[in-house]
């Protein structure tokens, strides 16, 4: 099986939310409420247990750009469909004490819902704030990367339903190259703040769902330098074991003298 990936391009997204609808219908994800944010058309606010694709609506103070040559808006509207990053070093997967969260043969990170017992440790271990527990169900849920569809030779439902190819699905190296070319093309067309979001230089070690964005990662609530919690294990355990040894010494001493 090849390693698959998502490339989600903010410069192509029209904010139609077809990805959200397709994801919900295909995966039978329950309703996630209606909470409007920032006076925009965003009614889900963030990814969560029942929001596996989340379309963001941003207004940025830059000029709209050449594709809207006939308009003179002082700002531009940018949309981005956020999704689970399927990290190379996935915090949720490392933290899961039941082995419910696993790495699939297509490189994605999958929660096996027949194993999850809802301990909630993955929730605090995701550096992107993606996975969450469904209050009524008790188990943790997130994007499955449509593993069922991929195994049947189909592309994920969100990519299939996207009308503008803002969500592209394919083999990871090819998509990474496509993303680089796209950023280059955008720079040439005057979008100097276009960039690829794929945190490779931190302990996350790259993601299987990367993004072409305009502006700073923070604008999209994407952490600028996310760290996999496993990067903290060594220092935390060192401190715990040294302190434990000291406690052992002190307690023995207290009774020996």
């Amino acid at each position: 099986m090849t390693i698959s990936a998502f490339l989600t391009d903010a410069t192509l997204c029209i904010g139609c939310k077809a990805c959200e609808v397709a994801c919900k219908e295909w995966n039978e994800v329950p309703a996630d409420g209606m909470v409007w944010s920032g006076l925009s058309y965003d009614n889900t606010q963030s990814l969560g247990a029942s929001t596996w694709r989340h379309v963001m609506f941003l207004e940025q103070p830059q000029a709209a750009g050449p594709q809207f040559a006939d308009t003179n808006d002082p700002f531009r509207w940018v949309f981005l469909s956020d999704v689970c990053k399927h990290c190379a070093n996935a915090g949720c997967l490392e933290a899961c004490p039941t082995g419910s969260i696993m790495r699939t043969d297509v490189g994605s990170v999958l929660v096996q819902k027949d194993v999850c017992n809802g301990c909630g440790y993955c929730v605090v271990s995701c550096p992107f704030g993606v996975i969450d527990r469904r209050p009524d169900d008790g188990r943790a849920f997130k994007c499955t990367f449509c593993y069922d569809r991929q195994k049947a030779g189909l592309i994920p439902a969100c990519a299939k339903a996207c009308p503008t190819q803002s969500i592209q699905f394919g083999e990871i190296e090819e998509l990474q190259q496509r993303a680089k070319n796209r950023v280059h093309e955008l720079h040439e067309r005057g979008y100097q703040d276009a960039r690829l979001y794929d945190p490779k230089e931190t302990s996350v070690g790259g993601v299987h769902a990367f993004f072409v964005i305009l502006g700073e990662p923070e604008n999209y609530n994407l952490p600028p330098a996310p760290e996999a919690p496993s990067a903290y294990l060594k220092s935390a355990w060192a401190s715990a074991l040294i302190s434990a040894a000291i406690v052992f010494g002190i307690v023995c001493l207290a009774f020996a003298v």
Partner: peptide, 26 residues
Amino acid sequence: GPAKPPPQIRGRESYYGLPVLKAPLW
């Protein structure tokens, strides 16, 4: 657009101040 335009996101501002991370649910 919406009846009232959303506030503009500048510099390194976050997405409408919404939390990035999920709170512990213990």
